[in-house]
Design a protein around this nucleic acid. Structure first.
Length: 314
DNA sequence: TTGTGTTTTATTGCCTCC
DNA sequence: GGAGGCAATAAAACACAA
């Protein structure tokens, strides 16, 4: 008898047996006692092997205990135990193995299968149903743990990506600030020169641009060039529209390269100063920046720096 | 041996489906 | 309304350290 705890009608079987360690370790000496001449109904159940298969595979030659049939038990001394209130019993290793295999095939239990399993295992159908129910609950818990691990690793990967992108963003942000400051200085320099000379005959501050461009970084170069353009558009009083700053080497190369920033600065050399001023303003794209989570790069109002960033972004 | 934490079996109550 | 599933929970059985 493999059922150390089996036996709805003989609760004391478990009482007798389970005084020792292990679910079934102590039951074997009592097998013959409880199972004299009894044999389980190894009829096999639908969609699975029969309990006998498990039994054989287990290398066990133990007969199967019939928990709810203790009529074969001729020992009257145990009768008193059988009349005590039923206690909780553990299924045998073989029973659990059989149920496990059945569960692997199909984790739901249709009525016929339940009855067949109960028959094969010598359990009550209700016990089989309960076992499947609890087994499904355990499976679900395990599944949740697995899902959690998958999500955890996914999260870790995404977080690593985010951190690296965040660092890159900070780096670029610092670069933007640096270039903005540089541009402001250039602007100041240009203003002071304008105050010294006649504005109409003044040359654009190519040197500053050239100096900036000579720093080597393309991004900086394009930014400065772009910003210089926008300055000339938005604040066209600084430069004559016919002035050769459009022929600036950097600028020209950008135009030739199809730099999208030129789109926002149409050639208006034949327009008056006011017209150009107004047009350049009206042609400026709306300063709509995506509101990022941390609020960075959110520019609700158009400022000089904003414009510079916007242009740089393009 | 005992105290304690874990696992397994079983119950209860609620919900859904037919 | 009954059957069956599920979540929450109780309680017995078990494992194990001290």
């Amino acid at each position: 008898m493999a059922a150390c705890g089996g036996g709805g009608a003989n609760p004391n079987f478990s009482v007798l047996v389970q005084s020792q360690r292990g679910p079934c370790a102590a039951s074997q000496p009592l097998e013959a006692f409880f199972l004299s001449g009894s044999s389980p109904s190894f009829l096999g159940s639908r969609s699975m092997m029969s309990f006998a298969d498990v039994h054989q595979a287990n290398g066990s030659t133990r007969p199967f205990f019939r928990p709810y049939d203790h009529e074969d038990n001729g020992d009257d001394d145990l009768d008193e135990y059988f009349h005590q209130p039923e206690k909780k019993r553990r299924l045998t290793v073989d029973q659990v193995q059989f149920l496990e295999r059945s569960f692997e095939v199909e984790n739901k239990l249709e009525p016929e299968r339940k009855i067949q399993l109960a028959k094969d295992l010598g359990l009550q159908p209700r016990q089989v149903a309960i076992w499947f129910q609890n087994r499904r609950a355990r499976w679900k818990t395990k599944q949740l743990e697995k899902d959690y691990e998958v999500l955890q690793s996914s999260y870790n990967g995404l977080k690593a990506d985010y951190d690296s992108l965040f660092k890159e963003k900070e780096k670029l942000k610092a670069e933007v600030n640096l270039l903005t400051e540089l541009l402001l200085k250039e602007k100041e320099l240009g203003s002071s020169e304008l105050s010294d000379k006649d504005a109409l005959s003044q040359e654009p501050p190519k040197k500053a641009i050239a100096d900036s461009a000579s720093e080597g970084e393309v991004s900086k170069t394009s930014t400065v060039a772009c910003q210089q353009e926008d300055i000339s558009s938005a604040k066209s009083d600084m430069f004559d529209s016919d002035s050769p700053h459009f022929a600036d080497g950097v600028h020209s190369s950008l135009l030739e390269a199809g730099d999208s920033s030129h789109v926002f600065e149409p050639d208006q050399s034949d327009l008056s100063q006011d017209e150009e001023d107004n047009l350049s303003k009206s042609l400026l794209p709306p300063y709509v920046f995506p509101k990022l989570e941390d609020g960075d790069y959110s520019y609700p109002q158009a400022s000089f720096e904003d414009h510079a960033f916007w242009c740089w972004s393009y």
